[in-house]
């Protein structure tokens, strides 16, 4: 029987872009806001753009926070993208919200007082892979991905950091833990390299 892949809908951005990218690599993914669908899924993709504060609030109101935690602890593959990457941590400075606490760490704002660098960090930037991961089999250090964000993740433990990116400071651009992997950049908008991560996610056994 075909696997059931669900994209979490919490009114945070263009989920159809993610769905189209999935289609392109042969993942028939459905978009759902129903916690029951998350719990019944074999794989879950947790994307998102926009404000983390309203995103966290929406997740709570729909009971999706509980469903996502339960899904994660079942051990099935979970892929976070952008906001989804931030919300798996314990806390975000954006609107000072508690998050899902799947991975230890916080999310902080880029704060360049001298205004030498623009915020949000928008555009293509390189990753430096600091730890191998099955989803990164087709990605090399120096490959570029498309970022749009004003906050960055700070995992507490180095073991959760898979890649770093330089923008005024060095920040974690990919993180992971057990059956969870997450990218700060929009892999669905990062060309062939981004699609390669999605393609590996399709087959990921963790």
């Amino acid at each position: 029987m075909a696997e059931r892949v669900v994209i979490v809908d919490y009114d945070a951005g263009n989920l159809r872009s993610v769905q189209r990218a999935c289609e392109h690599v042969g993942i028939p993914a459905e978009i759902s806001a129903d916690p029951a669908d998350i719990l019944a899924a074999d794989r879950v993709i947790f994307p998102g753009v926009g404000s983390a504060a309203s995103a966290v609030d929406t997740l709570r109101n729909r009971g999706l926070d509980v469903a996502l935690r339960e899904f994660y602890f079942k051990g099935n593959p979970l892929l976070g993208i952008c906001l989804g990457c931030q919300i798996v941590l314990e806390f975000t400075e954006e609107g000072r919200r508690d998050c899902l606490s799947l991975v230890e760490g916080v999310c902080q704002r880029f704060d360049f007082r001298d205004r030498v660098l623009k915020v949000p960090h928008i555009g293509w930037n390189e990753v430096e892979i600091v730890q191998d991961h099955p989803l990164l089999a087709d990605v090399a250090s120096g490959d570029e991905f498309y970022f749009v964000h004003s906050y960055y993740t700070v995992p507490t433990h180095q073991k959760n950091v898979y890649a770093m990116t330089e923008y005024g400071l060095r920040f974690c651009s990919m993180l992971g833990q057990d059956n969870l992997f997450a990218t700060q950049f929009h892999l669905e908008k990062s060309g062939r390299m981004g699609l390669s991560i999605l393609n590996r996610f399709k087959e990921w056994r963790c």
Partner: peptide, 8 residues
């Protein structure tokens, strides 16, 4: 376009 172009 969205079905074939995976850049912003």
């Amino acid at each position: 376009v969205a079905q074939e172009v995976f850049i912003p």
